[in-house]
């Protein structure tokens, strides 16, 4: 079981309260009408699948029901940090 810190409840809870919600920080093309098919395809369908540090979203489904960001290692499962939607991970520029 993972223990995950919800940045909204400001508490660490058991994994069973959360659901994984896909890769984080996917920016929607600002002008979908004029972006290329490749850019749109990448936005819609192509996701990272790294071996190691991964930026992802989780939702505190059985708690406050808020989405937030998690940096997690896909090999060790270690959660490096969690932070609010709209923010960037600590230590990045």
């Amino acid at each position: 079981m993972l223990k995950i810190h919800c940045p909204y409840c400001q508490e660490t809870r058991e994994e069973e309260e959360f659901h994984y919600s896909g890769q984080a920080h996917i920016a929607r093309p600002t002008d979908p009408e004029s972006c290329s098919d490749e850019d749109w395809g990448n936005y819609l369908y192509f996701r990272k699948n790294p071996r190691g540090r991964h930026m992802e979203m989780w939702v505190h489904a059985a708690g406050c029901r808020k989405f937030f960001n998690v940096v997690r290692d896909t090999v060790t499962y270690e959660v490096e940090q969690t932070y609010l939607i709209g923010h960037v991970p600590a230590g990045s520029t």
Partner: peptide
């Protein structure tokens, strides 16, 4: 006050 799971329910 906490919102959590009790058995299989919220």
């Amino acid at each position: 006050v906490i919102t959590t799971t009790l058995a299989q329910a919220q």
